[in-house]
Amino acid sequence: MRKAVVIGATGQIGRPVVDALARDGWAVTAASRGGGRDAGWDEGVRTARLDRADGDALAALVGDGCELLVDVVAYDAGHARQLTSLADRIGSAVVISSVSVYEDGAGRGFDTQGEPDGFPVYPVPVPETQPTVAPGEATYSTRKAALEAELLAAGDEFPVTVLRPGAVHGPYSPLPRELYFVKRNLDGRRRRVLAYRGESRFHPSSTRTIAELVRLAAARPGSRVLNACDAEAPTAAEIGAAVDAVMGAEARTVWLDGPPEGSVGRTPWSVPLPVVCDMSAARRELGYRPVVSYADSLPETVEWLAARVRGRDWREAFPLLARAYPDLFDYAAEDAWCAA
């Protein structure tokens, strides 16, 4: 059987990737820091413990070789060099990057969003040929750009498909944007405020979409960069309505014409201009076809989120989300704003 190694296998993206490859006939070794396994995996999936920072351990895991290596957690140029050093033992690779590497051609990107007039003005949709930020070590975006540059420099000697997801969604997320609507419904909130009239669009990426792209890229090795987003890019208001439909909830939305006022109206999708990516290259190069709609993917996400936060402080359940959006559920501020 064809051998595949998946690094970061028990994370949000890794779980469905392992499942997709195993169902496609690959003999999968699922590597993670804890060495655990998902209950839904085929019993033939092997598990292994791996510290991603340990290059010797990675080399030992690859052993005499594998036809495919999928790296879900690669982060910077150092990780890329670990992979390219094993090029003679790896048939091809698929590595997860991010749409945050894009800049708009005027020096604006994800890293400048907080600056005056700093939000990027991207074309709609954004193709893979869009300029990217300079590689570096300063930020998440520059490190991902450095990762890509190192990998792609290997060219035909090391066929690598780099995938750029957007707002990743699905169970096991450490940063579940959908919690903004799920928790409000669980808390009995029947009113919410959305900035930019709820029209913000930050292209989502289902973990099942990403897993399908990994599966297709594994069957067609090559050096390429592809966007890895869903077929649709719903607005924040449409996402809220979809979550309500799953939960059987009704909520009245109050619109802000412009940006959030403090915490009021701020959501994890609140962007003043659209971030929507072009998926035509994936269709052309891999024969990709959508495997799930945003709405159809929601029930399992909502169920998982509700179970995670029930009876717990949401900040304890999702510390990364709490650091990124500490005032996500400032109900007192919302109520005071609406009363005024």
Rank of each mutant, 00 (worst) to 15 (best):
I96N: 02
T207W: 00
R266K: 14
A146G: 14
E232D: 11
V160I: 12
S32Q: 07
D278V: 04
R191G: 09
A336G: 08
M1C: 11
A332N: 08
R177A: 12
Y288K: 10
P125T: 10
V291C: 12
D104S: 00
V193R: 03
R220G: 10
G258V: 10
K3E: 14
A9S: 15
R323D: 15
D38Y: 11
E250K: 15
L151E: 08
P116S: 06
R143A: 11
A59N: 07
A31D: 00
R108Q: 08
E150T: 13
D104V: 09
R266H: 03
N227K: 08
C338E: 15
T47G: 10
L179D: 06
A339T: 12
G105Q: 00
A307F: 07
P260M: 08
L226F: 03
R23G: 14
A48E: 03
A333P: 11
L68I: 09
R49T: 15
P174Y: 11
Q130M: 12
T47K: 06
P125N: 01
V101Q: 03
G36D: 12
A59I: 05
S205R: 00
A295S: 13
E103Q: 13
G258T: 03
P234M: 02
Y140C: 02
L298G: 06
A211M: 06
W337P: 09
F158H: 10
H169M: 13
A236E: 01
D296H: 10
P290T: 10
A251R: 15
A324T: 14
P234K: 05
D111I: 00
